[in-house]
Design a protein around this nucleic acid. Structure first.
Lengths: 164, 164
DNA sequence: ATCGATGCAAAAACTTTGCATCGGT
DNA sequence: ACCGATGCAAAGTTTTTGCATCGAT
C-alpha cells in the first residue's frame, strides 16, 4: 500500500504506481502501434497538466517550449491516450473537447465559472452511490459520470447587470 | 396551484403557466428585439421537442415540414431562446451543442448510452442539496448544474469486445 | 421610416483525413 | 524492410459573421 507518489497527485484506484508511460507503451504494443518520440513528447506535456486542458492549448504550449509536433499528431495521440484511459474527456462546453489526466484525478465533478471560465474540481463521493442507484433502476451499465455546477466563482463580485 | 398543463410535461418551478411564446415576446421586447415570423416558427419547433435536440437537427426537421428558415436564423434564435431561459444547454458531447426545453423539464441529469447515443433523463432531487453544500464550501454562486452518467443502456446486451 | 432581422455565402473554429515521406520494430 | 506515424495542407463539421435586402414596430 501507499505507493510512491506517481505521476501527479493522489487518489487513483487501480495500479497507479505503474508510470503512465509504461501503460501507454503497453497499450500501444497491444494495439500493434508504435511508441514514437512525438507520442512521448505529447504524453509528457499531458502529464504535466494539472488541470483540464484542450488540444489546441496543448499544441500552443508545446510550441512555446519549442517542442514541435503537428496538430494532426496531437489530435491523433489524444485519441490513443483516451483509449488507453490515461486521459478522460470532460464536458465543459460544447465548442471544444476538454481532457483531464485520469491518474491521480478522481473527481469527475467540477464547478465551472460562467464569467471567468475557471474550472474547480471538487470531491463528492456520494455521487457514486447515487449513480449505482440510478443505474440499477434503469438497468444501465455505468462506465463513467460527471457532475458539473455552473455559476459564478468567488472572484466575480456583484457584477452590475440587469438594469431595466 | 395546479396550473393547466402548459407547454409540455410537468415539473417546472416558476411561472410556467405563462406560455413560452409570451415569455419570448416579452424577453425580445425588453431587449429591443423583434418577434418575427421566423422566430415564431423556430419557437414552435422547439416547443414540440420532447427531448434533447441539436441545431442542425432542428433545421433539418423544419425543412422536412416545409418550414423554411435559414441556418443562420436558427443559430441566432437559439441564442436568444437560451438567454430567455426558454431552452437550456445540455452537455452531452463535445462536438455539438445540445439543447432542451427548460419549461416542464426539471431534470438536469441524464444517462447517456455510449453505444446507441440514447439519452435518458432521470430525476435525482438529492443533487440540489449536494450542489448547495459544495457551493457553500467554495463560496460559489450556483446557476445550474448537470449530472451525466455514461455507460451502456439495456438495449446493448453483452457486446463481444476485448479479445486479446 | 427606422433599425433590427433575414438569407446567403463566406469565414471561423475545431477536428479529421489524404498523401507522400519518415522511422520504429 | 515493413507497416505504421508524421507533417502538411486540404477537407469536414459545427457555428458565426458580413452584407444587401426585407420587414416589424
Amino acid at each position: 500500500m501507499t505507493p510512491i507518489q506517481p505521476i501527479s497527485q493522489v487518489g487513483a484506484e487501480e495500479a497507479m504506481y505503474i508510470p503512465a508511460c509504461s501503460i501507454f507503451r503497453r497499450f500501444l504494443k497491444k494495439q500493434g502501434l508504435k511508441f514514437t518520440p512525438e507520442r512521448a513528447k505529447i504524453l509528457d506535456a499531458v502529464l504535466a497538466k494539472e488541470e483540464v486542458f484542450e488540444a489546441e492549448q496543448l499544441l500552443y504550449e508545446m510550441r512555446n517550449e519549442n517542442v514541435r509536433v503537428s496538430k494532426a499528431t496531437i489530435y491523433r495521440t489524444l485519441k490513443h491516450l483516451l483509449e488507453a484511459k490515461i486521459i478522460r474527456e470532460v464536458l465543459i462546453d460544447s465548442k471544444q473537447a476538454h481532457y483531464q489526466l485520469t491518474y491521480g484525478k478522481d473527481p469527475q465533478a467540477y464547478l465551472v465559472c460562467m464569467e471567468t471560465n475557471t474550472i474547480i474540481p471538487f470531491d463528492a463521493p456520494e455521487l457514486k452511490a447515487l449513480r449505482e442507484r440510478i443505474c440499477a433502476e434503469h438497468n444501465f451499465k455505468p462506465v463513467s459520470h460527471q457532475f458539473v455546477i455552473y455559476g459564478l466563482c468567488s472572484d466575480v463580485k456583484d457584477e452590475p447587470d440587469e438594469e431595466a
